[in-house]
Nucleic acid binder design. Sequence first.
DNA 1: TTGCAAACAGACCGAGCGGTATCTTCTATG
DNA 2: CATAGAAGATACCGCTCGGTCTGTTTGCAA
Lengths: 196, 196
Amino acid sequence: MKKAAATRLMILEKAFELIYIKSYQTTSVDEIIATTKVTKGAFYYHFKTKDEMGLAILHEILKPALANSFIQPLQLQANPVVAIYDLMHGLLMENEFLKVEYGCPAANFTHEMTPWNADFRKVLDEITREWETAMATALENGKEKGFIRKDVNSKQVTLFVMSGYWGIRNFGKLENSKSIYLPYLQELKNYLHSLS
Amino acid sequence: MKKAAATRLMILEKAFELIYIKSYQTTSVDEIIATTKVTKGAFYYHFKTKDEMGLAILHEILKPALANSFIQPLQLQANPVVAIYDLMHGLLMENEFLKVEYGCPAANFTHEMTPWNADFRKVLDEITREWETAMATALENGKEKGFIRKDVNSKQVTLFVMSGYWGIRNFGKLENSKSIYLPYLQELKNYLHSLS
DNA sequence: TTGCAAACAGACCGAGCGGTATCTTCTATG
DNA sequence: CATAGAAGATACCGCTCGGTCTGTTTGCAA
């Protein structure tokens, strides 16, 4: 990789981590350049504005990360009951990047940016729809293979499950302990089994 | 009410609405005093800091509001399947204060304040637990009256349902339309029926 | 009516914000 | 090796932030 491209990517990655911990609005450009050891000139050479950087983070960091961690796992298991549960368990209990006290990066961005920034909302909506499609497809395939009842509405279930995930991530912030995830996962398992 | 107390309450109420729309961190004291037509001297007479005002909002506005809108409805219906569904339907589809594009005030506060302000987290945790207790109690009573299966774990179900609510509120921000609530409510109904 | 604290008014402050302007240093290509 | 454009450095700007300070008005008890 060219040096300049590496600088740009490094800014995006470190800024993403900072923003995950501190939120977008309260993470200043000065903080970003301090932790990246990149000067303001370099920063504003690569990004016209802070928001342009924010959007680049969504496109170039968050989107691929979600494809890897949220979508791929759904395609490794034919039984959606198992696939969805394992995905959630992995995200909540095993994922090393995601911290209980800071919640879900995508949910955080949605929470603070969506009501008043149309560009952010558009990208976040795209990202969310990708996950939605992947999960709904997994459920549909599961129906064909007899893992899921035929009368189950896949899109509806997907929305229900995704909502639960975003919500429990917020609960985690309150409790500040992963132990709150366990009863959620248990009930998710019960719910998923009721679909088969 | 004394005039000074009225001023204080007016600040809290208007600030709460502003913060609901704009988020706490991006709502400045200057904005609050501009919309309330209260001067800075008056504001800082009533509240030592912005955070003290924020905590007062949680205690004096949000807490009673949740008791009225989130807890009381659960005690009007003996069958928790109906009570919980009606509560959610009322909150999502009928409540006039809550707007789809701005989400849930309690969830918003939790999202942005909880990771780095222990005082806010404590109050929000209290408020959440009140709701949790009310819903779990409703489910337990429902078990005794035969509306809910005996093997259902009330606390677990409560957590699952509350998570779904917070999550779908976040989805609403993305879609910016109440229509996204309908499939969620439909699946919630399916899930609740699976408990009986 | 006076006295005095409660309540309010508003100019002001230093710090931090996002962003710009100008300059210097790399680096790829002829 | 020359040189032009890419990349990076840094001082600076206007503005807003939360908060302070000093002064004025209001309400109520004596």
